[in-house]
Design a protein around this nucleic acid. Structure first.
Ligand code: FES
Ligand code: FES
Lengths: 135, 135
DNA sequence: TAAATTCCTTGTGATATAATAGGAAATGAA
DNA sequence: TTCATTTCCTATTATATCACAAGGAATTTA
Protein backbone atom coordinates (compact mmCIF):
# COMPACT_ATOMS: atom_id res chain seq x y z
CA UNK A 1 0.00 0.00 0.00
CA UNK A 2 1.50 3.23 -1.12
CA UNK A 3 -1.10 5.51 0.44
CA UNK A 4 -2.21 4.78 4.00
CA UNK A 5 -4.90 6.39 6.12
CA UNK A 6 -2.55 9.30 6.82
CA UNK A 7 -2.69 10.43 3.22
CA UNK A 8 -6.34 9.56 2.76
CA UNK A 9 -7.45 11.32 5.96
CA UNK A 10 -5.36 14.36 5.08
CA UNK A 11 -7.25 14.54 1.81
CA UNK A 12 -10.56 14.09 3.64
CA UNK A 13 -9.72 16.93 6.00
CA UNK A 14 -8.79 19.32 3.20
CA UNK A 15 -11.84 18.36 1.16
CA UNK A 16 -14.06 18.99 4.18
CA UNK A 17 -12.42 22.36 4.77
CA UNK A 18 -12.95 23.19 1.09
CA UNK A 19 -16.63 22.35 1.27
CA UNK A 20 -17.11 24.53 4.35
CA UNK A 21 -14.67 27.30 3.47
CA UNK A 22 -17.37 29.97 3.94
CA UNK A 23 -18.02 29.03 7.57
CA UNK A 24 -14.80 30.40 9.05
CA UNK A 25 -12.69 28.13 11.22
CA UNK A 26 -13.82 24.50 11.24
CA UNK A 27 -13.12 22.38 14.32
CA UNK A 28 -11.76 18.86 14.11
CA UNK A 29 -14.79 17.77 16.08
CA UNK A 30 -17.06 18.68 13.18
CA UNK A 31 -14.76 17.13 10.61
CA UNK A 32 -14.49 14.02 12.74
CA UNK A 33 -18.27 13.72 12.92
CA UNK A 34 -18.91 14.43 9.25
CA UNK A 35 -16.15 12.18 7.92
CA UNK A 36 -16.60 9.60 10.69
CA UNK A 37 -12.91 9.52 11.49
CA UNK A 38 -11.19 9.35 14.92
CA UNK A 39 -10.56 12.89 16.16
CA UNK A 40 -7.34 12.11 18.03
CA UNK A 41 -5.85 10.62 14.91
CA UNK A 42 -6.96 13.59 12.84
CA UNK A 43 -5.16 15.85 15.32
CA UNK A 44 -1.83 14.27 14.47
CA UNK A 45 -2.46 14.48 10.76
CA UNK A 46 -3.69 18.07 10.70
CA UNK A 47 -0.67 19.09 12.74
CA UNK A 48 1.57 18.31 9.77
CA UNK A 49 -0.70 20.21 7.41
CA UNK A 50 -0.66 23.16 9.78
CA UNK A 51 3.10 23.25 10.21
CA UNK A 52 3.61 23.20 6.46
CA UNK A 53 1.22 26.12 5.99
CA UNK A 54 -1.44 24.20 4.10
CA UNK A 55 -3.99 25.20 6.71
CA UNK A 56 -4.04 27.82 9.44
CA UNK A 57 -5.43 27.32 12.91
CA UNK A 58 -7.16 29.24 15.64
CA UNK A 59 -7.24 27.96 19.19
CA UNK A 60 -10.01 28.21 21.71
CA UNK A 61 -13.76 28.41 21.44
CA UNK A 62 -15.02 28.88 17.89
CA UNK A 63 -11.53 27.91 16.82
CA UNK A 64 -10.49 25.35 14.27
CA UNK A 65 -8.79 25.22 10.89
CA UNK A 66 -9.18 26.78 7.47
CA UNK A 67 -7.46 26.64 4.12
CA UNK A 68 -4.72 29.14 3.32
CA UNK A 69 -5.20 28.85 -0.43
CA UNK A 70 -7.93 28.16 -2.94
CA UNK A 71 -8.84 24.50 -3.59
CA UNK A 72 -7.39 24.68 -7.10
CA UNK A 73 -4.01 25.57 -5.61
CA UNK A 74 -3.62 22.28 -3.72
CA UNK A 75 -2.35 19.39 -5.81
CA UNK A 76 -3.14 15.91 -4.59
CA UNK A 77 0.52 15.08 -5.01
CA UNK A 78 1.66 17.79 -2.61
CA UNK A 79 -0.88 16.65 -0.01
CA UNK A 80 -0.02 12.95 -0.22
CA UNK A 81 3.71 13.59 -0.22
CA UNK A 82 3.37 15.76 2.86
CA UNK A 83 1.16 13.38 4.81
CA UNK A 84 2.91 10.16 3.79
CA UNK A 85 6.41 11.54 3.59
CA UNK A 86 6.92 10.22 0.07
CA UNK A 87 5.13 8.63 -2.86
CA UNK A 88 8.03 6.35 -3.74
CA UNK A 89 6.66 2.96 -4.80
CA UNK A 90 9.83 1.18 -3.58
CA UNK A 91 12.22 1.93 -0.74
CA UNK A 92 15.18 2.09 -3.15
CA UNK A 93 13.89 5.50 -4.19
CA UNK A 94 13.90 7.18 -0.81
CA UNK A 95 16.53 6.33 1.78
CA UNK A 96 19.33 5.35 -0.62
CA UNK A 97 19.77 2.04 1.15
CA UNK A 98 19.98 -0.14 -1.90
CA UNK A 99 23.63 -1.05 -2.28
CA UNK A 100 23.48 -2.41 -5.79
CA UNK A 101 21.69 0.63 -7.12
CA UNK A 102 24.49 1.47 -9.54
CA UNK A 103 24.09 -1.73 -11.54
CA UNK A 104 20.46 -2.62 -10.93
CA UNK A 105 18.28 -3.71 -13.84
CA UNK A 106 15.07 -2.65 -12.13
CA UNK A 107 15.95 0.79 -10.82
CA UNK A 108 15.04 2.58 -14.08
CA UNK A 109 11.65 0.87 -13.89
CA UNK A 110 10.99 2.20 -10.39
CA UNK A 111 12.13 5.66 -11.33
CA UNK A 112 9.81 5.80 -14.31
CA UNK A 113 6.95 4.41 -12.25
CA UNK A 114 7.41 7.05 -9.60
CA UNK A 115 7.57 9.74 -12.27
CA UNK A 116 4.29 8.49 -13.70
CA UNK A 117 2.55 8.50 -10.34
CA UNK A 118 3.93 11.89 -9.42
CA UNK A 119 2.92 13.46 -12.73
CA UNK A 120 -0.63 12.24 -12.35
CA UNK A 121 -1.11 13.22 -8.71
CA UNK A 122 0.41 16.63 -9.38
CA UNK A 123 -2.02 17.14 -12.24
CA UNK A 124 -5.09 16.84 -10.03
CA UNK A 125 -6.20 19.47 -7.51
CA UNK A 126 -8.69 19.57 -4.65
CA UNK A 127 -11.02 21.50 -6.93
CA UNK A 128 -10.99 18.69 -9.47
CA UNK A 129 -12.06 16.25 -6.76
CA UNK A 130 -14.80 18.56 -5.50
CA UNK A 131 -16.17 18.90 -9.01
CA UNK A 132 -15.67 15.19 -9.67
CA UNK A 133 -13.62 15.86 -12.75
CA UNK A 134 -11.72 12.60 -12.72
CA UNK A 135 -11.79 11.16 -16.23
CA UNK B 1 5.43 1.61 -0.03
CA UNK B 2 3.49 -0.18 -2.67
CA UNK B 3 6.17 -2.70 -3.62
CA UNK B 4 8.06 -4.44 -0.80
CA UNK B 5 10.98 -6.82 -0.93
CA UNK B 6 8.59 -9.62 -1.85
CA UNK B 7 7.89 -8.08 -5.21
CA UNK B 8 11.44 -6.85 -5.75
CA UNK B 9 13.03 -10.18 -4.84
CA UNK B 10 10.55 -12.04 -7.05
CA UNK B 11 11.71 -9.85 -9.91
CA UNK B 12 15.34 -10.47 -8.99
CA UNK B 13 14.77 -14.22 -9.00
CA UNK B 14 13.10 -14.22 -12.40
CA UNK B 15 15.73 -11.92 -13.87
CA UNK B 16 18.47 -14.21 -12.58
CA UNK B 17 16.71 -17.24 -14.04
CA UNK B 18 16.39 -15.38 -17.34
CA UNK B 19 20.09 -14.59 -17.43
CA UNK B 20 21.01 -18.23 -16.77
CA UNK B 21 18.22 -19.90 -18.72
CA UNK B 22 20.70 -22.00 -20.69
CA UNK B 23 22.18 -23.64 -17.60
CA UNK B 24 19.24 -25.89 -16.78
CA UNK B 25 17.83 -25.82 -13.29
CA UNK B 26 19.22 -23.04 -11.10
CA UNK B 27 19.36 -23.53 -7.33
CA UNK B 28 18.29 -20.89 -4.87
CA UNK B 29 21.75 -21.14 -3.36
CA UNK B 30 23.29 -19.73 -6.52
CA UNK B 31 20.65 -17.04 -6.86
CA UNK B 32 21.08 -16.16 -3.22
CA UNK B 33 24.83 -15.75 -3.68
CA UNK B 34 24.64 -13.83 -6.93
CA UNK B 35 21.88 -11.47 -5.83
CA UNK B 36 23.08 -11.34 -2.23
CA UNK B 37 19.64 -12.09 -0.83
CA UNK B 38 18.72 -14.38 2.11
CA UNK B 39 18.04 -17.86 0.82
CA UNK B 40 15.35 -18.71 3.36
CA UNK B 41 13.37 -15.67 2.37
CA UNK B 42 13.77 -16.48 -1.31
CA UNK B 43 12.36 -19.94 -0.61
CA UNK B 44 9.07 -18.45 0.52
CA UNK B 45 8.89 -16.11 -2.44
CA UNK B 46 9.77 -18.65 -5.11
CA UNK B 47 7.17 -20.98 -3.66
CA UNK B 48 4.45 -18.60 -4.83
CA UNK B 49 6.02 -18.28 -8.27
CA UNK B 50 6.22 -22.06 -8.51
CA UNK B 51 2.63 -22.72 -7.48
CA UNK B 52 1.37 -20.21 -10.03
CA UNK B 53 3.34 -21.89 -12.80
CA UNK B 54 5.71 -19.01 -13.45
CA UNK B 55 8.66 -21.29 -12.77
CA UNK B 56 9.06 -25.05 -12.54
CA UNK B 57 11.16 -26.86 -9.99
CA UNK B 58 13.27 -29.96 -9.68
CA UNK B 59 14.15 -31.36 -6.29
CA UNK B 60 17.35 -33.05 -5.22
CA UNK B 61 20.91 -32.68 -6.30
CA UNK B 62 21.39 -30.59 -9.41
CA UNK B 63 17.86 -29.41 -8.86
CA UNK B 64 16.52 -25.89 -8.75
CA UNK B 65 14.18 -23.70 -10.77
CA UNK B 66 13.76 -22.57 -14.34
CA UNK B 67 11.38 -20.37 -16.29
CA UNK B 68 8.36 -21.93 -17.96
CA UNK B 69 8.06 -19.18 -20.56
CA UNK B 70 10.26 -16.80 -22.49
CA UNK B 71 11.31 -13.56 -20.72
CA UNK B 72 9.16 -11.47 -23.07
CA UNK B 73 6.09 -13.38 -21.89
CA UNK B 74 6.37 -12.21 -18.26
CA UNK B 75 4.93 -8.79 -17.59
CA UNK B 76 6.25 -6.94 -14.55
CA UNK B 77 2.66 -6.33 -13.55
CA UNK B 78 1.84 -10.03 -13.39
CA UNK B 79 4.95 -10.71 -11.29
CA UNK B 80 4.36 -7.89 -8.81
CA UNK B 81 0.67 -8.66 -8.46
CA UNK B 82 1.46 -12.29 -7.75
CA UNK B 83 4.23 -11.64 -5.23
CA UNK B 84 2.57 -8.71 -3.46
CA UNK B 85 -1.01 -9.88 -3.77
CA UNK B 86 -2.12 -6.61 -5.33
CA UNK B 87 -0.86 -3.35 -6.77
CA UNK B 88 -3.68 -1.29 -5.28
CA UNK B 89 -2.29 2.05 -4.06
CA UNK B 90 -4.98 2.31 -1.35
CA UNK B 91 -6.79 -0.35 0.69
CA UNK B 92 -10.17 0.90 -0.55
CA UNK B 93 -9.40 -0.84 -3.82
CA UNK B 94 -8.84 -4.32 -2.49
CA UNK B 95 -10.79 -5.64 0.47
CA UNK B 96 -13.93 -3.56 -0.04
CA UNK B 97 -13.71 -2.31 3.54
CA UNK B 98 -14.41 1.34 2.82
CA UNK B 99 -17.96 1.92 3.91
CA UNK B 100 -18.44 5.30 2.28
CA UNK B 101 -17.21 4.05 -1.09
CA UNK B 102 -20.51 4.82 -2.80
CA UNK B 103 -20.30 8.56 -2.19
CA UNK B 104 -16.57 9.15 -1.92
CA UNK B 105 -14.96 12.05 -3.74
CA UNK B 106 -11.57 10.40 -3.87
CA UNK B 107 -12.43 6.89 -5.03
CA UNK B 108 -12.35 7.81 -8.75
CA UNK B 109 -8.88 9.23 -8.18
CA UNK B 110 -7.61 5.98 -6.68
CA UNK B 111 -9.20 3.93 -9.42
CA UNK B 112 -7.57 5.99 -12.14
CA UNK B 113 -4.23 5.90 -10.33
CA UNK B 114 -4.35 2.13 -10.08
CA UNK B 115 -5.28 1.90 -13.75
CA UNK B 116 -2.28 4.03 -14.64
CA UNK B 117 0.12 1.94 -12.57
CA UNK B 118 -1.31 -1.30 -13.89
CA UNK B 119 -1.13 -0.19 -17.51
CA UNK B 120 2.51 0.75 -17.17
CA UNK B 121 3.63 -2.35 -15.30
CA UNK B 122 1.74 -4.58 -17.74
CA UNK B 123 3.48 -2.86 -20.65
CA UNK B 124 6.96 -3.85 -19.49
CA UNK B 125 8.34 -7.41 -19.65
CA UNK B 126 11.35 -9.18 -18.19
CA UNK B 127 12.99 -8.95 -21.61
CA UNK B 128 12.67 -5.16 -21.56
CA UNK B 129 14.48 -5.05 -18.21
CA UNK B 130 17.23 -7.39 -19.39
CA UNK B 131 17.81 -5.21 -22.44
CA UNK B 132 17.50 -2.05 -20.35
CA UNK B 133 14.78 -0.68 -22.59
CA UNK B 134 13.19 1.58 -19.99
CA UNK B 135 12.65 4.98 -21.56
C1' DT C 1 24.52 -44.27 0.23
C1' DA C 2 25.50 -39.43 0.51
C1' DA C 3 25.11 -34.84 -0.74
C1' DA C 4 22.27 -31.46 -2.39
C1' DT C 5 18.16 -29.43 -3.07
C1' DT C 6 13.10 -28.33 -2.84
C1' DC C 7 9.22 -28.20 0.17
C1' DC C 8 6.60 -27.37 4.42
C1' DT C 9 5.43 -25.55 8.94
C1' DT C 10 6.48 -22.62 12.48
C1' DG C 11 8.55 -18.90 15.01
C1' DT C 12 10.55 -14.19 15.71
C1' DG C 13 12.33 -9.48 15.99
C1' DA C 14 11.78 -5.13 13.96
C1' DT C 15 9.09 -1.67 12.04
C1' DA C 16 4.93 0.72 10.58
C1' DT C 17 0.12 1.58 11.11
C1' DA C 18 -3.63 3.29 13.44
C1' DA C 19 -4.88 4.88 16.76
C1' DT C 20 -5.71 6.33 22.31
C1' DA C 21 -4.67 8.94 26.74
C1' DG C 22 -3.91 12.86 29.32
C1' DG C 23 -3.27 17.26 29.91
C1' DA C 24 -1.30 22.23 28.97
C1' DA C 25 -2.23 26.48 26.57
C1' DA C 26 -5.13 29.62 24.18
C1' DT C 27 -9.45 31.86 22.90
C1' DG C 28 -14.09 33.64 22.60
C1' DA C 29 -18.53 33.83 24.84
C1' DA C 30 -21.37 34.31 28.95
C1' DT D 1 -13.78 36.90 35.19
C1' DT D 2 -15.00 32.49 34.42
C1' DC D 3 -15.79 28.67 31.62
C1' DA D 4 -16.52 25.76 27.84
C1' DT D 5 -14.21 24.84 23.78
C1' DT D 6 -10.56 23.97 21.00
C1' DT D 7 -5.74 23.50 19.47
C1' DC D 8 -1.36 21.71 20.74
C1' DC D 9 2.02 18.54 22.69
C1' DT D 10 4.02 14.33 24.55
C1' DA D 11 3.49 9.82 25.52
C1' DT D 12 1.54 4.98 25.19
C1' DT D 13 -0.74 0.97 23.08
C1' DA D 14 -2.58 -2.45 20.00
C1' DT D 15 -2.37 -4.63 15.72
C1' DA D 16 -0.49 -5.94 11.50
C1' DT D 17 2.99 -6.51 8.18
C1' DC D 18 7.72 -7.16 6.93
C1' DA D 19 11.71 -9.58 6.62
C1' DC D 20 13.51 -12.96 7.71
C1' DA D 21 15.40 -17.67 10.49
C1' DA D 22 14.93 -22.67 12.18
C1' DG D 23 14.24 -27.23 11.62
C1' DG D 24 13.31 -30.93 9.27
C1' DA D 25 10.81 -34.08 5.73
C1' DA D 26 10.81 -35.48 0.93
C1' DT D 27 13.13 -35.95 -3.40
C1' DT D 28 16.76 -36.51 -6.75
C1' DT D 29 21.32 -37.28 -8.85
C1' DA D 30 26.18 -38.67 -8.44
S1 FES E 1 18.03 -0.28 -6.55
FE1 FES E 1 16.90 -1.33 -5.04
S2 FES E 1 16.44 -3.25 -6.01
FE2 FES E 1 17.58 -2.17 -7.50
S1 FES F 1 -13.47 4.69 -0.84
FE1 FES F 1 -11.97 4.56 0.72
S2 FES F 1 -11.57 6.66 1.18
FE2 FES F 1 -13.06 6.76 -0.35
Amino acid sequence: MMISTKGRYALNILLDLSQHADEGYISLKKISQRQKLPIKYLEAIVSVLNKSGMVESLRGKEGGYRLTKKPEDYTIGSIIKLAEGSIAPVSCLESENCAQACHCLTLPLWMKLEGLIDAYLESVTLKDLLEQKIS
